[in-house]
């Protein structure tokens, strides 16, 4: 049971972080379907950083440096989306999809070639970080408390304050509702949308590194992040683009995702004798059902997905 709580919190943190990223981007008016790829690149940068950093680094430095490098990688990568979609008015769905495919392909190529350079016989796309991971975990009587919970809560608070309590956040949201109106009062829509996408890069990178450290101590980059970027978008829609609601939605989805990891340890679920594949499908099925019921009365930003055209009314 403790394990279920632990995994629920881990997956909820990932979903919360990435969904908040999507939330920033969409409030600025850009649909960021590339979150999955951004997560992969963030995870890769973080994992490689962990491997490169010396093991005896103080825990706090280890955590900060890893997160910083993960975020840096993800932000640089998300600028590809911003550049194409904001400056060149490219189709946001197409570019997002390209970034997802590119993320997994690039991460696999990079990790494989680094592995091969270190040891010519090693052709896997795996990075392991067993000793480094210890810096992130505090074991309390068998419950593994991860510093990522703290990161997620800070990120949630920051997102709430920035979006609703600062001039910047309100302007950002104006750009997603009616960019021409925002521009007419002197807001630079292009700049605001860039900020929206780059902030989503920060959150996506944090989510990515958090995801690959969720249970295991090594990650094969061929697998990407198993649709988590899209689950996070479902969480965001279920949370109606509001940070506090997104947090609740993330907990719910995190719970179902955690079930598939730990159901064998729970006697009651084991007795039901349901195949493991069903539990694997559960988060996706739940999100489909939830989306079917919540999308109708959507509170989506009005101008999301539409490239900004100064001359349009």
């Amino acid at each position: 049971m403790l394990l279920l709580v632990q995994y629920t919190l881990v997956f909820a943190s990932v979903l919360l972080l990435v969904a908040l990223g999507g939330c920033f981007s969409e409030h600025s008016g850009v649909i960021n379907l590339g979150l999955e790829g951004i997560m992969v690149i963030g995870a890769m940068s973080g994992a490689l950083a962990m491997r490169a950093l010396p093991d005896d680094l103080p825990a706090i430095l280890m955590i900060l440096l890893t997160l910083l490098i993960a975020v840096a990688g993800a932000v640089i990568y998300s600028s590809l989306l911003a550049f194409a979609c904001i400056n060149f008015k490219a189709d946001q769905t197409l570019v997002g999809t390209a970034l997802n495919l590119l993320g997994t392909a690039a991460a696999t190529v990079i990790v494989k070639s680094l592995n091969r350079a270190a040891n010519p016989d090693n052709v896997s796309s795996e990075v392991s970080y067993i000793s480094e991971k210890k810096a992130f975990i505090v074991n309390i009587n068998g419950f593994e408390f991860s510093w990522f919970f703290v990161v997620a809560i800070i990120a949630l608070t920051v997102a709430f304050v920035v979006l609703y309590k600062t001039k910047f956040g309100l302007r950002l949201m104006a750009c997603g509702e009616h960019p021409q109106a925002a521009a007419s009062v002197g807001i630079n829509v292009i700049k605001m949308r860039w900020f929206g996408v780059l902030i989503s890069g920060i959150y996506g990178g944090l989510g990515g590194i958090c995801y690959i450290m969720s249970g295991v101590s090594q990650w094969k980059f061929e697998y990407g992040v198993a649709g988590f970027g899209f689950l996070a978008l479902a969480v965001m829609i279920f949370g109606q683009w509001k940070p506090q609601r997104i947090a609740l939605a993330a907990l719910l989805f995190g719970f179902f995702r955690a079930l598939s990891n730990v159901y064998t340890g729970i006697d009651f679920l084991n007795a039901l004798n349901i195949p493991g594949a069903i539990y694997n499908m559960l988060p996706y099925i739940i999100s489909l059902i939830v989306l079917a019921f919540t999308s109708k009365s959507s509170k989506a930003p009005k101008a999301e997905g539409i490239p900004y055209d100064r001359g349009m009314r």
Partner: peptide, 17 residues
């Protein structure tokens, strides 16, 4: 690694944007 071709085709999709 064989994923180079995936890399190239994903770059091509990006450029198609």
């Amino acid at each position: 690694c064989s994923q180079i071709s995936d890399l190239i085709s994903s770059i091509i999709i990006y450029l198609c944007g």
